[in-house]
Amino acid sequence: VFQFVHGKAGEAVRTVRVPVGTGISGSVAKYGVPLVIPDAQKDPRFNGKIDEKSNFVTRSVICVPLKREENIIGVLQSLNRKDGSTFSNQDLSIFESLAGIASIAIENAQLYTVLNQRLQQLEEAKQRNEYILNQLRRSEEETEKLKELSESRGAFSGKLDVFRVENLVQMLGNDYKTGKLTLKDDSEEAYIYLQNGKLRHVQLKNRNISGLNAFFETICWQDGEFSFEDGITVGENTIDKMSMSIIIEGLRRLDEYNVLKEKYPQDSIPKLNPDIDINQLEDINKINILKSIDGNKTIKDLLWVSSYDRYTFFSLIKELDEEKKISF
């Protein structure tokens, strides 16, 4: 692709792609050998289509490779000397010197871009880690209240805007509790079963989600009520990981979910791209969501009829949006 162009025909060819090995510049890009051509029209490698597109007449050409070490990263080319003469060996020497300088500048620019991207990734990772650490640091007041509730009687209850799900599970784990933690938000219930402080099974009442995905769903609940019944057991065992590692992963998902829900408000209505053939897709998760989109359902409606936790659902919506399979 012509990245940097100068001259009257520059804008006309800026987006033109020249395959490696095609045309004069493509030949230089493939073989790495400089070319000085006095009459391009008579050269068998000349590609006249670019002249047609730009209404330009190419006569003489000088083209040299841009190299970094042994790698060819592009070409530097000039057409038609202003005085009408052909390019000389002296011009070639000057051009090769310019190509060396340009190659270094291009590599430095690429390294600068990569460095900036890496720094941004590190900053985002730092912010996520700080968020998770802050969530894991329960306040002394909250800890004391939880302990008082737990020690006062086998069953206790409260509000999720006061006691977060991850804090409840962590406290019950520290006390090696066995029992059933019931969570209720405005439209759903969840049942979390623990045995000797370890997560064993999680089930949503109204949606077909269980196990880890059900637990990750409850991490996103910021309002509602909870109650704990001591001694309740369950036969199912859908979770076999350490509770703390699950909580940390849940908080990471919560952090990303909070960003995604701002980008895709729950009252927004996605629409299918009419050019997409759902039957040609391979990702069953994306297919399931696309089949639910009818132009009337909001994001909240689609989430409710899906079998995905909120983080997974919004991540799929983001991918479908970026892939231009849906629009808003």
Rank of each mutant, 00 (worst) to 15 (best):
F2I: 07
Q3F: 09
K8M: 10
K8E: 15
E11Q: 14
R14C: 08
V20L: 09
T22M: 12
Y31C: 13
V33A: 09
P34I: 07
P44E: 12
R45L: 15
N47P: 03
D51A: 06
K53N: 08
N55M: 09
N55S: 14
R59Q: 12
I62C: 03
I62P: 00
V64K: 03
K67C: 13
E69R: 14
L76V: 11
K82L: 15
D83V: 07
G84C: 08
S85N: 13
S85R: 09
N89P: 02
Q90Y: 13
L92V: 05
F95E: 04
E96M: 15
L98A: 07
A102D: 01
I104S: 04
I106L: 08
Q110L: 08
L119T: 06
L119W: 03
Q127W: 10
R128W: 03
Y131N: 05
I132R: 02
N134Q: 12
Q135R: 12
L136Q: 05
R137M: 11
E144W: 09
L146K: 04
L146I: 08
K147A: 11
L149F: 10
S150V: 11
R153E: 10
K159P: 00
V162N: 13
F163Q: 11
F163P: 01
N167M: 11
L168V: 04
L172S: 00
N174F: 07
D175K: 14
D175V: 07
T178R: 00
L183W: 01
D185Y: 06
E189T: 11
E189P: 02
G197M: 01
G197K: 00
L199G: 01
V202R: 00
N206T: 13
R207K: 12
S210T: 14
S210L: 10
T218E: 02
I219V: 15
I219E: 02
C220G: 11
Q222S: 14
D223W: 10
G224S: 06
F226P: 02
S227A: 09
F228M: 02
G231Q: 03
T233Q: 07
G235A: 04
N237W: 05
N237T: 12
N237G: 05
M242A: 14
G250W: 01
R252V: 05
R253V: 03
L254G: 05
E256Q: 14
E262W: 05
E262V: 13
K263F: 05
Y264D: 03
Q266C: 08
I269T: 12
I269F: 05
K271R: 15
D275S: 15
I276Y: 01
I276P: 00
Q280H: 08
Q280P: 00
D283I: 09
L290P: 02
S292L: 12
I293S: 07
D294P: 07
G295C: 09
N296I: 14
K300R: 14
D301Y: 04
L302V: 07
W304F: 15
Y308Q: 05
D309N: 15
Y311F: 15
E319M: 07
E319D: 12
E319W: 00
E322F: 07
